[in-house]
Design a binder for these strands. Structure first.
Lengths: 347, 347
DNA sequence: GTGAAAGCGCTAACAA
DNA sequence: TTGTTAGCGCTTTCAC
């Protein structure tokens, strides 16, 4: 009862590794029992459990999750797409996402879309091909093609860092428009009247800029949108572009008394350039960043900024996906985590 | 020849998605031909190819790589382990790794080990379970258990950011000892005599510290190791710990005229604290960082540092793994990419 | 609590 | 160039 005649046997030696079958044989049980011992131990008698565990220990068996995923249609893989990991902005989210998923037994696959949408399609295909149990998007998916593919894939999707009335599936974010408006109000309350914008050219930053201009109009700080000095720099933003940006802005509008930067790094650049030029902050110039990165409280002067809780975004996104994967109802499909204007010395 | 009596038929509806079989049927070919059309188009006639591609387009078929990986024993997945992605240090490498792998049709799985080795074991199991085609480690694997498991898995491993005479498999790194010695020489040449160290407490930083002390001894800057003021801060290092660190160092050794920091972020903190205290850099204090992050050239004053080419490390690591996965010979199993002391205004 | 059979979706091996 | 067959290693379904 061992093998057919070797002459007619197809050849296909496995990868050579230990399989669940080997473990089962060593433990003297059937493969499915070994599987249950590892996955649903409650269904197995204590002695059997012990024997299987011993066999695992002796062999150094590591389950093949590719095979498991194929058989169970659950890969325990979650994909995250970020514009770039070179910027520190999304790191906090990715970090907490990785941890939260690891705690639940899921692994993170990372994809970079670049700020341009060119490679997004290939990336989406690569991701969907792995049949992840969930996809976390940074920002919202705009291309109709992309939305359709995601929808068609049937994979749970969480869009993050943004709000939209028409999410693909789930959403964890905050309102960029409101955040910018809150900054205008803050600066206005601090007596600033000649505001300016220094901003990356990515979509979310541009949306904040619109919110900023609108609120400035509403408060009567400007009479028409074009009055507000704006300087755009290419994303991802850097300290260097912050320095150059302030220089340019002061050329455009020397009387500027407050700058709202689209990232803390940009704001740090502004602080640096101001220091280098002997411009007093906040005396002559107020500076507000965005993101509340770890360093924001330790700059000189300490940087006012808008706090976005990347950790919370990552955790909630992980929760959404894990809940869905485990068949639990998702508490909230759309979640506005808000933001917080943090006033420090720079304004 | 279609189906057995329904009564005895096992039930197991698939995931419901489009499969290669569906595509093949639509194109009027066998599944394996469809497979070849997608994977090795050269083996298929032009007309067949066209028909298959059309069928793919019509159905929106996305190949299931879990199944493909299982069947071919090639997952086209590569795992990377970093201590944390919260620090910007390894981002450059991860970024270039992601891109280089994506270009070759591989996807990156990201794992965080934390600076402590506690979770490393669980992480290793999670990774090996996916049967990646390669594993990129940040730093070298120390735990004997970990080394054994990796070796036993048979998966190609690249250790990075370090050199060791006994790599598990492949290695792309540089010498921390030599880098630190080069910094001592640089500071010595610039006339500095009272050196100090401000450093994270991670293993590689500590190794640099030893190299730093050794070289200082050799040059006669100190008579014994304990003479050199050292302040350790917990990794990951931050701008804030740099500020606090300088404060502490000046308490310990007020006459210090040069500080070597274990990261650029720490160094930026030192610059910040020095500015806040009115300490002239480089006049009274020279500052050297480590990493040459994007911002280093734009600080005020511009930061001298040690350039580590993270992009190159990522690319070479990707190349090593892809070569191995595709069955090509690996050019160099051990690669010392070196480093470069970059002198800027801060020293 | 345990097991036998079937099959997840794909590709390697062999055959024509 | 195309097809047939037999798995990859696991888990589902059904049966005891």
């Amino acid at each position: 009862m061992d093998s057919a005649p070797p002459s007619t046997r197809r050849q296909r030696r496995g990868s050579g590794g230990i399989t669940l079958g080997d473990v089962a044989r060593l433990a003297g049980v059937s493969p499915i029992t070994a599987s249950r011992a590892l996955n649903t131990p409650a269904q197995v008698s204590p002695e059997t459990l012990a024997r299987v565990h011993e066999a695992v220990a002796r062999t150094g068996y590591v389950p093949n999750r590719l095979a498991g995923g194929l058989a169970s249609a659950r890969s325990r893989l979650v994909a995250a797409v970020v514009p770039t990991i070179a910027g520190p902005v999304f790191m906090e989210m990715v970090q907490s996402l990785t941890s939260a998923l690891a705690d639940a037994g899921y692994q993170l696959m990372l994809g970079q879309s670049g700020y341009a949408d060119s490679r997004e399609d290939a990336l989406l295909e690569a991701i969907i091909g792995r049949r992840p149990d969930g996809i976390v998007l940074t920002g919202i998916m705009h291309s109709a093609e992309g939305r359709r593919r995601l929808l068609a894939s049937g994979i749970p999707v969480v869009e993050t860092w943004d709000l939209t009335p028409t999410p693909i599936d789930m959403l964890v974010g905050f309102s960029h428009t409101q955040a910018a408006a809150a900054v205008v109000q803050h600066l206005h309350a601090r007596g600033r009247r000649r505001l300016a914008l220094l901003s990356g050219d990515d979509e979310r930053a541009l949306r904040r800029n619109r919110g900023f201009v609108d609120e400035a109009l509403r408060l009567g700080l400007i009479a028409e949108p074009a009055e507000l000095p704006v300087h755009l720099v290419p994303a991802p933003t850097t300290l260097g572009s912050g320095r150059a940006g302030l220089a340019r802005l002061l050329q455009l509008a020397p009387a500027t008394d407050a700058v709202f930067c689209s990232s803390d790094l940009l704001a740090l650049g502004v602080l640096t350039e101001a220091a280098a030029r002997g411009i007093e902050v906040p005396g002559r110039l107020a500076v507000v960043g965005f993101g509340d990165l770890a360093f924001a409280g330790d700059t000189h002067p300490a940087l006012s900024t808008v706090r976005i809780d990347g950790t919370a975004i990552g955790q909630r996104a992980a929760r959404c996906i894990v809940d869905r994967a485990e068949g639990r109802p998702v508490e909230q499909k759309v979640l506005d985590l808000g933001f917080q204007v943090i006033q420090r010395a720079s304004s």
